[in-house]
Design a protein around this nucleic acid. Structure first.
Lengths: 344, 344
DNA sequence: TGGACCTTCCAAAGCGCTTTGAGTGACGCG
DNA sequence: CGCGTCACTCAAAGCGCTTTGGAAGGTCCA
């Protein structure tokens, strides 16, 4: 069933049918209803490929994920994607995923642009200085960055959260509780957000005149095991931290497990604060009685919003979209408490 | 830069240029070279949308992932996807991912078919009896099933592994080592592969005249934590198993961790055998000295092959593709050993 | 020398939609 | 009554490619 055939059946021109279905104003209300009903009855759905060619819109958005040593798709990315999907579904866009070896990443962007396969892309895992921003600008391909570069925060659209602020606040909170040795269990430091969190952490320490001890700063892929191992290593060290700040709730859970294994009480012997991306399948206690003291921001909501921003950019290229930096809640749970009295 | 423009520059017709670039025989070798060079020089890449409309091929394959309570995209799926991507990239196909609420899954398939958005789909997480097989057959949409239904193994194309055989062999191995109480840490039993593994396990027990104890059979999402918790529960039970068969190396690692926590020696006090999907970032010891005794089959390779099969179906609709069921290696590691002497 | 047959190329017709520009009545107003 | 305006509708021209059905020219052989 094609538009033309449907039009013939209705005794109308393809033009009118197209307009009726696409909600253009210049068609009689009655006619529109007639067309819509006929379309439904005939089970007519416009051919995507034809629509795309005619409009010059691919109605698709690309996500390119580099193949790396660790998990191909980590839980945070998965959750972000799920959020983005909602926006895509609503706006009739498809999500195109390209899993590619790292060294071919640029080629894929070039190819997507040249072949007009997607209308835009979302950039993940931004690095401190990220060549993709320049590349996509050159390619004139609309894009939204999840996070933002550390050296360049103008000239492109991004959606980020106040990582530095959040971690500064969390660190400050721990310091106020009397902690002097605070471990930072960061995400991979090559990534922009980790760098910002480090800055927030350091800045809080410095404001309180506390030393920054390299031994208390770790970075890595944010898994449960990483949290466990890191915590264990610290506990076994000469001067273990009395509090820990984690970049993800997964690592925080790992760290908490390490404490439990050692018979240490969470929030008493050792405090743990963490960032919480609000992964859909991990409850941090209840809404009003969280387990972990945490800086909270839904990564899924970020996905939905970033996708929406990109779609806006594509559909209204003239009106420049505003970047957004979300505030982050700090909620207080049972995982943090006053620093234990020094033993020595 | 369009085909037409390129043709004009070359003083050739679009027809010839198109044929030259697409490798048709009816064009002079010299001309072809000339065209190819000009195309490269002019940085010409055919417009995807136009190509699709003209050929009637979307050059895209859909993967619809239902949104569920747990991880949106689990590690096994991610790895499969990565494998599939290779085939897609090589054949010039795109991968379209739709994350959808469970109750809208069917609608998405229908919509993909009606709009001609994809040329085919791959079905994941097959259930014992899976309505999607019928649906897609009705929709006349090419599809390949990863795994296979338990009630229907004809009339569609699938790629599966010998789950029942593998688990029967593994169970038999444990029995021969003297184990009489063998725990099964299965994947979600609603899924076809878990059912088959259960059958293999049961059948081995029955062949040796051993009882099937419901208390020793568990199923769940295959995470490390699930393995840990399940093992712990068993260890705390009245009659703990002396050996455990796990459906994934992640759970096996969790189970091993539980043993370690309890001061039990892996392969001595308790044996663990597991299926190993060969996740790219998890080494099971070395190639010739594996840690876990395991039934091995690369899920990534399965992704590559399944995608290839689907592409074949799409490109040569007349020659029916053969389903494949892969044999599974059983390799012996240090995680299994003779059953300990009964204490009582 | 003329026809059969290749080889190489081309014009033009789609693919199924959107969109421009124009046409046709009907209506209101001076 | 004539003209401008408005509300609808349509024909036709793309979008950028593929593919069908020739056509031109060359080769070969009887």
């Amino acid at each position: 069933m094609t538009l033309k055939e449907l039009a013939r059946q209705l005794g109308l021109s393809p033009t009118t049918v197209s307009r009726a279905l696409n909600g253009y104003p210049e068609v009689n209300a009655e006619t529109r209803v007639r067309v819509e009903e006929a379309a439904r009855a005939a089970n007519y759905v416009p051919n995507n490929m034809a629509q795309r060619l005619a409009t010059g819109r691919a109605k698709a958005i690309g996500h390119v994920v580099p193949l790396h040593d660790h998990q191909i798709i980590n839980p945070f990315f998965a959750e972000f994607i799920a959020g983005a999907s909602e926006s895509y579904a609503q706006a009739g866009f498809e999500m195109i995923l390209s899993v590619v070896p790292r060294d071919q990443e640029e080629d894929v962007y070039r190819s997507l642009a040249a072949r007009h396969t997607v209308d835009g892309v979302i950039i993940h895992n931004v690095r401190e200085v990220d060549s993709r921003i320049e590349l996509l600008t050159d390619l004139k391909m609309p894009f939204v960055v999840h996070g933002r570069s550390n050296v360049m925060t103008e000239g492109y659209t991004y959606l980020d959260i106040r990582n530095a602020n959040a971690f500064e606040a969390a660190t400050r909170h721990l310091i106020r509780l009397g902690h002097r040795r605070i471990g930072l269990m960061n995400g991979l430091i090559a990534l922009s957000f980790a760098k910002r969190r480090l800055m927030g952490y350091t800045s809080a320490l410095e404001n309180f005149g506390l030393p920054v001890d390299e031994a208390l700063i770790r970075d890595g892929e944010m898994t449960e095991g990483y949290g466990y191992d890191t915590m264990m290593a610290w506990l076994d060290s000469d001067h273990p931290p009395t509090a820990v700040l984690s970049s993800s709730i997964l690592s925080a859970m790992g760290a908490a497990r390490a404490l439990a294994d050692r018979g240490l009480r969470l929030g008493h012997d050792v405090s743990i604060a963490t960032h919480d991306d609000k992964l859909s399948y991990i409850e941090n206690g209840t809404e009003d009685a969280p387990v972990f003291t945490s800086t909270r921001s839904s990564i899924r909501a970020a996905g939905t919003r970033a996708a929406q921003m990109l779609i806006d950019m594509i559909e209204h290229p003239e009106t420049p979209v505003q970047s957004e930096v979300w505030e982050v809640d700090l909620v207080y749970g049972r995982s943090t408490g006053p620093a234990p009295r020094a033993k020595d």
